[in-house]
Design a protein around this nucleic acid. Structure first.
Length: 196
DNA sequence: TACGTGATCACG
DNA sequence: GTGATCACGTAA
């Protein structure tokens, strides 16, 4: 079952980031389904410097972050990689959760093809890799997550508090003291978590 | 540890 | 218009 609007519109983006662990991210690209279980997330809020919408700075790129929770935010990073976020919070509140790693679930063959490999070894263990594997690019920016292109379902997997590890977010050294916020969440000892 | 890569943003 | 920057991945 698809996650509801009220799930995405919760006021605490950090809580949503934790609760997304164990959920299933699914794409339907040209009638082909691929999916994976979310094992790593990061929270971003307009209140802190790591966020594209810090201090409510609104641009063409990040405008969708100001929509109510339940939309996708996809952008190109370093000219090469597409990164996918889930917009959370209320209308006008710029918050989002970055999906950083998945455990492959449905459509593994197609994911391998997209990744140009015969193996499933770490094909979705990183924010740039999982978008490529699932066929996500900027044409999926701003999609409604209760639609039929890109959505998240409850997989039935329960991730208990003791199985969630919090750490500082990756790749945002420019954010000063906010770079130390423990807003990255991983499933403990999960092999599919990203590594640098 | 170095660097490719190109959209985006803040300047004028 | 232009230059600096960047929520990564890979090779070495």
């Amino acid at each position: 079952m698809k996650l509801s609007e009220s799930f995405y519109q919760q006021s605490d983006v950090v809580k949503v980031a934790r609760e997304l662990l164990g959920k299933e991210l699914i794409t339907n690209i040209q009638n082909k389904i691929t999916s994976g279980i979310i094992v790593e997330t990061e929270a971003y809020s307009w209140k802190e410097k790591g966020c594209h919408a810090y201090n409510n700075r609104k641009t063409t790129r990040n405008a969708v972050m100001f929509q109510p929770g339940g939309f996708s935010y996809v952008y190109l990073c370093y000219g090469i990689h597409h990164l996918v976020n889930v917009v959370t919070g209320g209308d006008g509140v710029a918050e989002a959760v970055l999906i950083r790693a998945l455990e492959p679930s449905a459509g593994v063959d197609l994911m391998q093809e997209r990744m140009n490999t015969d193996s499933d070894y770490r094909i979705t263990s990183g924010p740039g890799k999982l978008t490529k594997a699932l066929g996500i690019d900027r044409s999926l920016n701003g999609k409604y997550l209760l639609g039929d292109d890109l959505w998240i379902e409850d997989s039935g997997i329960k991730v208990g508090k003791s199985n969630i590890v919090a750490s500082k977010r990756i790749g945002i050294d420019y954010a000063g003291e906010d770079a130390h916020l423990p807003w990255r969440f991983t499933i403990k000892d999960n092999t599919w978590v990203s590594r640098r």
